[in-house]
Design a protein around this nucleic acid. Sequence first.
RNA 1: GGCGGUGUAGCCAAGUUGGCCUAAGGCGAUGGUUUGCAAAACCAUUAUUCACCGGUUCAAAUCCGGUCGCCGCCUCCA
Length: 463
Amino acid sequence: MFFNNTLTRKKEEFVSLNDRQVFMYTCGPTVYNFAHIGNFRANVTYDLVKRWLKFRGYTVKHVMNITDVDDKTIRDSIAAGISLKELTDKYTAAFMSDCKKLRIIAPDIHPRATENIFQMIRLVCELIEKGFAYKAADNCVYFSISKFKDYGKLSHLNMKELRQCDRVTNDEYDKENVSDFALWKAWTENDGDVKWDSPWGPGRPGWHLECSVMAREFLADTIDIHMGGEDLIFPHHENEIAQSEAATGKPFVKYWLHNAYLLVEGKKMSKSLGNFFTARDIIKKGWTGREIRYVLLSTHYRRQLNFTFDGLHAARSALQRLDALREKLDGTNIDGKASAEVIEAVKLAREKWIIALDDDLDISAALALLFDFVREANRFIESGKINKSSSKTILSFLDDVDEILDIKKSAEEIPEGIIKLAEERTTARKEKNWARADEIRNILKDKGYTIEDTPDGSRAKKL
RNA sequence: GGCGGUGUAGCCAAGUUGGCCUAAGGCGAUGGUUUGCAAAACCAUUAUUCACCGGUUCAAAUCCGGUCGCCGCCUCCA
């Protein structure tokens, strides 16, 4: 299995640190609002990596932080006149519910920043003791990047050559070096009642700190995989490395994986362009979680993804083709002759599937082979080469594929009355009572269902 | 200015350590099969061409030089 490692900028074979156990940490959401589809691209990517590792026989322990204290959560809770906890609890729950809709497997542990303040203070103390951090005149504690000689190794940025842009030079902090970052931020009036006591006075932790602390606390000093969006490479992940490695003296992460950003309708997603969407916005427009999941999944994670409504339409059609094959294989009219050809085709597809995903999650190759296989299977069905047993073999392959993609149609709840009408149509058609059959079709259409006539009878499907 | 990505059919998107590429796969479109009529489904067809110009080579989407376009990061945005 190979992953493209941001740290080395190379595709490397994955070798876990502890036999079959993989420690994986992913950067979670800041819970001040509903998460947007860009956030979910990242989470779908985490999900894909995790599922593939599990499929390949690893046990994965996955930790993802919930950032429930920062400038934005504080700002918005004050604006809404509610407590920080009230605000962040609401959006944490919303995030998890959205993830579930997109069929993202929940992390094993999702620690909240505010529940690990003590450990964060302890790490800051450790960094001060070891000479990597200092308290400034503004009562904030900063990490001194000049003390950490590997600083910049992940982002490959040369700090001396960084452009001195306005927001840096206008900085009002009392830092020794403009690039030093806050480990602990002293309380100000803007923070309202959000503060914790510390050896440096009341305040709150810096954002970067929580990931270093939680990865160490819930996983280990050195972990296998750390993931996040490409925008986090610098400064967030660079700073995590600095904090963690300065404290432990050990490498923090073996494989850094980053997903690319997404565009919406070809443009960067922004509220002013009107192309800013949360997952629930899209669900409200009538798209399902699995359709969104498929769109987010179907472009390789390191490539920029253009999220469009055309893409959602394409996803819907493609998924329906997959559904249709399953339905046919499950149907009672599968009654062909046994054929070694079929078994061979499944075997080949399975091999290609593993080769594709082992290669840095090459989803394009994986989906191409899947649809090649779908066409092949359809031809087998048409030519009567599939019997009950080979049909099971195919379905079991499709199930294995779905262990990773998780795009299978969920059983839809068709109301009793609708089923009755569909059955009535079946009878009417048997009796060649076309008038009644057409009438029922129209009734169902008004109720939002379409009719599919199969050899097994008429079936109602939600429009 | 620094670092990185990218430009392939109507749309999305593989392929970029050169040669089964006379370029995967998906959507769409068109034709056919099927159907009481439909719908759905299935099958088939759909880029002599890979942003543009020039070069290297027996051979280039793939290498080299140049030009143009788009996108991201450069201190708290996945």
